[in-house]
Design a protein around this nucleic acid. Sequence first.
DNA 1: CGCGTTGTTGAGTT
DNA 2: GAACTCAACAACGC
Length: 260
Amino acid sequence: MPELPEAEANRLRIARDCLNRTIEAAKPGDDTDHIELPGDNERGRLVGHQFTQTHRHGKLIFAGSGTGPWIAVHLGMTGSLRPFEADDGPPDYAKFLILFEGERRLAFRCPRKLGWVRVVDSPQAEIDRIEFGPDALEISRDVFVEVIGTSRGAIKSALMQQKKLAGIGNLWSDEILFRLGIDPQRKGTQLDEEQLGEMYDAMRNILRAVVDTQADYSKLPEDWLIHTRDEGAECPQCGGKITRTKVGGRSAFHCTRHQD
DNA sequence: CGCGTTGTTGAGTT
DNA sequence: GAACTCAACAACGC
C-alpha cells in the first residue's frame, strides 16, 4: 500500500478513529519473527498516554501527543494500519496491536514483514535519524530543481531516493514520467530547468489527486498509467505500447512512443 | 513451481 | 569520498 498518498490514507484512519483515547496496552501480534517492533520497554512507554495528533513525512506515519511518546510506522511493501473494534477481532497478519480504553483498537498489518513500528520521542527526531529528505508535498520548487537536476543516475531512481525527496516510490515515479513524456532512464542532469519545473508541478498534481481519492485507484482518471501497468498494453495517451524495463533494479513501465 | 512485488539497506563500484 | 548500482531481505499471490 505504501507511497506518500497511501501513507496519507493510513494516517487519516488513525486521525479519524484513534485520537484522544487512553492507551491501555500495546502488544505484538502473531508470527513476528524478523520484523522490527517495539520491545517491552517501548510498549510500556505508550500505556496511559493518548494520541492527540498525527503526522506524516514521506512514507512515514506518526501518532503521538505534546506530552507523551510517539509511534513511527513504516508500511514497507504491504503494510497498513487498521482501526477495529475488539468484538470484530484483529485483521489477518496483524503484527502489532494498540488497545485503547473501551473497544477501539489499532492493528498494524504487515503480511510480508518489510515494514516496522518504533516508539520515538518526536517525528522530527526520527526523520533526522533516518535522514529523509523533504516531504514531496512540502519541498520547494527551488530545492526540487536543485536536488533532482543534479542527479547523475536515472531520473526515475532519483525521484525514488528518500534521502533526496521523501514519499515517491515505484508506482508514482512511473506516473509522473508518463505524464511528462520522459523516459525513466534519462538522467537528471539531462533535464533543463523548464522540464524540472514541469516535473515539480506534475509531482504535486499527481500526489494530491491520489491523496484526494484516499488512494482509491479506481477513482483516478482513465488516461493514467496506473490502470495500464502491463507489458504490451496500449498507451491510454497516445496509443503506443507500454513496456516493462528494469531501472535501478525495479520494474519500470513506460510508453515507448511518447516517453523519450 | 517460478516469478514478481507500491520498500529499504549495505556492500561493492564509479 | 560522494554518488550510484544491485542483490538481498520475507513471504504472499498469480
